[in-house]
Design a protein around this nucleic acid. Structure first.
Length: 248
DNA sequence: AGGTCTGTTCAGCT
DNA sequence: TAGCTGAACAGACC
């Protein structure tokens, strides 16, 4: 599920745990928690207070008072849970407890989420909702690859996942396999505008699954604009749907 | 019951 | 170098 809109929701959830002293941390899942030594993240965090919650693309991080930074990523199925899990506690891969008894957990069935101490975001591109016109043209229009593959490249711009990419491309009437070097400045500007609109709509409506194209995005789906059946192929290594009539 | 598919990221190869 | 491919995980679905 998690793409930029879900990550933003998680960030907002994390704001509700700021300002409390950390009393315990469970980082025993050494696949999800990096560095790999169990107890390392705990030792660094206990006694500190979380002071701010940030996001760039799908990457989250929490700043402590004068201490380390805690990076979080939801992976492919992760979420931030404030309530202790009753039935499936095994899905809580990383847990932080506070002095007042409250807690939050990084909950993920698939263990593809990550909790990282002092994360490095130097290779993460600007947030898809914030990137300026000229930088978008430069970063998306460069090189020679399928447009959709470039949108999914978090180093180019960050926050776009498989579903959001299909939604934005459909809104901008651009075919996913179009080559980046062939795009006009006008194409790129339109794509940027539609991508920002898709992101904002998804945040407002509660997730990327609320997109008009995402809702019909399957083998039987029809284009919401022209009602023609959707095409399906692998582009950029990911299952991709588009309207062969509207997008070129 | 077993095979296929999945919203992400990253290492490793060409 | 930039751009692919496949691996990591584990559940959902048919």
């Amino acid at each position: 599920m998690p793409e930029l809109p879900e990550a933003e929701r998680a960030r907002a959830t994390l704001e509700s745990v700021l300002g409390r002293r950390i009393t315990a941390v469970d980082d025993s899942d050494t696949y999800v928690c990096r560095p790999h030594q169990a107890g390392e993240i705990a030792a660094a965090l206990v006694g500190h207070e979380l002071v701010s919650a940030h996001r760039r693309g799908k990457f989250l991080w929490l700043q402590t008072d004068d201490g380390p930074t805690l990076g979080l990523h939801l992976g492919m199925a992760g979420a931030i849970a404030l309530e202790a899990a009753r039935d499936k506690p095994i899905w809580d891969r990383f847990t932080v407890e506070f002095e007042d008894g409250s807690r939050f957990a990084l909950r993920d069935r698939r263990r593809l989420a990550r909790a990282v101490l002092n994360p490095d975001f130097s290779h993460v591109g600007p947030d898809a909702a914030d990137v300026g016109r000229d930088e978008f043209r430069r970063r998306i229009g460069a090189g020679n690859t399928a447009l959709k593959a470039r949108l999914l490249d978090q180093g180019a711009i960050s926050g776009v996942g498989n579903l959001l990419a299909d939604q934005a491309l459909w809104q901008a009437r651009l075919a996913p396999q179009r080559t980046t070097s062939q795009l006009s400045a006008e194409d790129l500007d339109r794509l940027r505008r539609e991508l920002r609109a898709a992101v904002r709509s998804a945040i407002r409506r509660g997730g990327v699954h609320t997109g008009s194209f995402v809702e019909v995005r399957d083998r039987e789906g029809a284009c919401p604009r022209c009602a023609r059946g959707l095409a399906r192929a692998t582009v950029g290594g990911r299952t991709t749907y588009w309207c062969p009539a509207c997008q070129e």
